[in-house]
Amino acid sequence: MVHQGEDKMKRKVGIIKYLLVLPVALLLGGCYTVLWMPNSDTAQLPANQYDNNGYDFYNQDYYGGYWSYYNTPWWVGPVNSYTPYSPSEPSRSSDVQNLRDNTGGRNDVGTERPAMQSGSAGRNSSGNDNIGKQNNNSNNSPANNNSNTQNTQTRSQNNSGNNNSLDNNALRNNNGSRNSGSGRR
C-alpha cells in the first residue's frame, strides 16, 4: 500500500514537472507573444498595435462575409463592417476587345497577323483570357417471475460472517464483460 502511494506521488510530481518545465523554458528562451499591458494614461485596447503577420488557414468561403471578423482579434477593431462576398463573381475587365465583332462566326486564328515565315502556324488564343476568370481567393426475460410467492424465508441467519466475504468474488462487476482472470484461455 505504501509502495502504491509512493508511485502515485512520483507520477504526480513527474507530471507537474512536465507542466512547469514548459513555461519556464518559454520564459528563458523568449516568447513570441507580447502581452498588452494597460497603460495608465490610455487604458485603451491595442487596436492599432496588433502585429498580425501570421498565416490564415481558412479561405474566405469558410466565413462567408465575416472572414475579417473571425480573423481579427476581438480587441482590434473596428471589424464590424460586413463585406458581402460572392466567390463566383468574375473580376471585371475593361478590355472589351473580345466582345467586339462577336458575330457568332469563327474566331479564326492567325488572322490578326500574318503567319510567321518560319515555324508552324499555331493558333493564337490570346485576348480571351479575361472571360470567366475567377476571383481567386483560394489561398486563403427474465422468465418465471413467480408472483405466487409463499413462505418467504431467509436461510442461515446466523451466517453473519459472510458480509463482504469471498462470496463477492463472483458477483462484482459481472456486468456482461469479460471475466479477465480466466477469460481468455
Partner: peptide, 10 residues
Amino acid sequence: SISFSQGVSD
C-alpha cells in the same frame, strides 16, 4: 482487507 474480484473490463 475484504477480497473481491476487480476486472480488466473495469
